[in-house]
Nucleic acid binder design. Sequence first.
DNA 1: CCACGCTCCTGCGCGC
DNA 2: TGCGCGCAGGAGCGTG
Length: 270
Amino acid sequence: MPELPEVEVTRRGIAAPLTGQTVTVVTVRQPRLRWPITPQLASILPGQTLLDVDRRAKYLLLRFARGTVILHLGMSGSLRVLDSSIKPEKHDHLDISFGDRVLRLRDPRRFGAVLWHEGEDETHPLLSGLGPEPLADRFTGAGLHAALARRQCAIKLAIMDSSVVVGVGNIYASESLFRARIRPGTAARRLSRSQCERLRDEIRATLGDALAAGGSTLRDFLHADGEPGYFQQSYFVYGRDGQPCRICGTPVRMRRLGARSTFFCPACQR
DNA sequence: CCACGCTCCTGCGCGC
DNA sequence: TGCGCGCAGGAGCGTG
């Protein structure tokens, strides 16, 4: 599932070949994603030039003169830049064509979203109220500590809450907490200031490492086959229930937290 | 304000 | 090249 590093790699992968290109045709084959693809997209976009591709949380923001395409990949979404002659396959729901190249969205589970928005980002309900970007300087240990002060929920749920910090999904939540040596079930408000500093640093390091690993897959965005922007890392704890901790050898444990699989080392994490 | 459960959807793994 | 079932998962949203 695309987490923030994958989304950022996707952003770079599509921005490079498409920025400055002008939309010729929009083809919607299946509008029913998480919300319907904005119906007017096919009439609005042609003739407009892609000015830039930004990212906020896991939302990709395709900038045009008249507005922004807000695009989320959900759980199974992927974007590729292909030659227009390549035929769409099952689950290829949307094409934004730029002459002989096409930006193609594939999303088998259809948890993604493609919405047209005119106006400032902050005026859109999906973008207003988002917390800090984890890789930006504005995300600080002190700020995290303050955000957690009244939260009784498990720290893992808190860092997956987009009003606290954006872009930390299920995998990297477990990984960051392992690296910060904090139990996922700890009440958020119980974290000390120094633990928050540590957690902040490890969230950044975890996402940063994944981003670095994904950078090498950029070329895949211009290929027809292979999964673009996806990269299998070797995780410390995620998906490793019962296997030895890579640091101390103690079997990794799995538990449910907010209906999500959560992994931790009972010895390394207190 | 906060917490929690529901919901969307399909591929996959499992048991038979 | 089986079939039917149940789960996983991002994140918005409604409810208490």
